[in-house]
Design a protein around this nucleic acid. Sequence first.
DNA 1: GCAAGGTC
Length: 644
Amino acid sequence: MKVLCVAEKNKISKSVSASLSRNNFQSRNTKSKYVKNYSFRFNFPQWGDCDVIMTAVSGHIMQKEIPSDYGWGKVPNDSLFKCPIVTRYGDDNAKKIAENISELAKSSDVLMIWTDCDREGEYIGWEILKAAQEGNSSFTLDNVYRARFSHLESKHIYSAACNPVRLDKLAIDAVDTRMEIDLRTGYCFTRLLTDSFRNVIKSDSVDDDNNNGNSTKNKKKNDKMISYGNCQFPTLGFVVDRFRRIKYFKEEEFWGIDLNLKKDRKKFPFIWERNRLFDRLQTVCIYQNCINEQSDNVVVKHVSTNPTTRYAPLPLTTVELQKDCSRYFKFSAKDTLQVAENLYTKGLISYPRTETDSFPRSMDFRHFITMQTASSEWGEYSSSLLNETNHKFRVPRRGKHDDEAHPPIHPVGYADNLTGKEKTIYEYVVRRFLASCSLDATGSMTSIKVQWATETFHSTGLVVLERNYLDIFKWDHWDSSKKGLPNVAVGEHIQISDATISSGKTAPPQPLTETELISLMDVNGIGTDATIADHIDKILTREYIIKQKLGSGKSSKEVFHPTILGYGLADGFGKLGFNNISLTKPFMRKDMENDLADICQGSKPKGQVLKETLDVYRDAYTITDEKVSTLVNAYKTALNHSRS
DNA sequence: GCAAGGTC
């Protein structure tokens, strides 16, 4: 029997080949530079000793497209809601990969799909089946095998090979639905917006004066692209929302009581339990009452000291990596992913696109920690984790997310010759990994409550007892309180040093940081770990948002503001009066995700979801088209406001 | 010229 195995990427096909063949496999180049064919023998329980060829694709092979008959300007925009959709090869390389599969399929008796165990992986499996059918029409959904695996440990891979299932047609339907909705709505709204803003906004990069816009060719070239995407717009919405909260923020004055106590010739500040009141008179009355009743001392009501813990970090996911690299190093999410990919291809870290925050049970932590003992910076710490007598090592905590395809990001090789961003991110991944293998930090928290007439005040103080992971994860700060607490007992009277009424004003929120934006997208299901950075980058290049440095020195950070165009678009879409929907909020995407889950469950057919969803977008399109002047005017208003 | 999702 001849068995053809196909993985989602070469890396996996090589690793699976090595596991199944016990490192006894031959490798051949293909026409695609990303893919190799590996051959070996394997004894499958259902077919006996087989000749196996294992190859891979490189992500999706095919791409959905609007047919050229429905090109820009050739048809009414809304015909894109019902026009046929064609699929073609993503690029030349994808075609070579598909041909490699068709060719191999000709002489194969069995086809086994080894794509990632997620929705997209199921769909890529379907694309692989289609390519195989070109060469061997006997392969169908009913006889193709699908290996289910969630990591690359040999035993697990062996078991996956021996217990294959079928491709999940429902998951394939779900992905197909998402693709169709994104394509139709994206193209349709993009054409409308770009055409509507044609004479209102000019691209910066062209010489407008020399071009009167008569030539279609020049028109295209000079147009500013105003793209719409089901992820782009909610992303823009997050930035605009924060901007609005700042813009319309009304500051309020508040009052409080500052109390300083005196003991052993030292002063200790205490915090009012009511924190602050927005009523000056009430604050003054309370203050006067305290002074009158008990003018020079307070009574200690409560003293407690409790152990407290600061948890070592969870195993690292893509989104966490991007958030921390933005926060600590000011790297954009896109740069971070790019650099992490370089480190991955150099064999230094594991696959950098993962949602999983718990390591496989069989993970050999010692192996990966041992590698790091060579470092002059963290080698000593790594050795101390390995030292059995001091019990510094612990199996990392387990998070609740599992993409069932990749383990958390961790170092898999050692290097000390890296420079620039690669050095920084590698060090981060290593320290984070070592930290997750370290004990939690411990401390003791003392809390004192005192009573001054009717009012209660408190103060807390932290003493860090064991730093543990903090020693290696240097970006996390948890320090003993500098001020300390007075040494007091319950019932004791303490002298008041001074008590004053303070006042302040509420402050507006800060503009959105990239860390916050990534979090918002992540929790709202806008994009995936692999695409969140792309969506942010896209609306930056479309000039819907800009990045700005806020503050100076060590505390400076980079934040996002909407541009006039971005604000105008979000504001304009808000004024169109859709029926209970918003294109700049994440809810439509969430609804669609729920529908896709229903398709996977079999509780809603693909056709129904497509129709219902596209109907909603089509209504929105019709309204946008009718009131497009409202949209343009919102932009003009924003422009005028910015000039005045 | 236009989306989002894979991967290099």
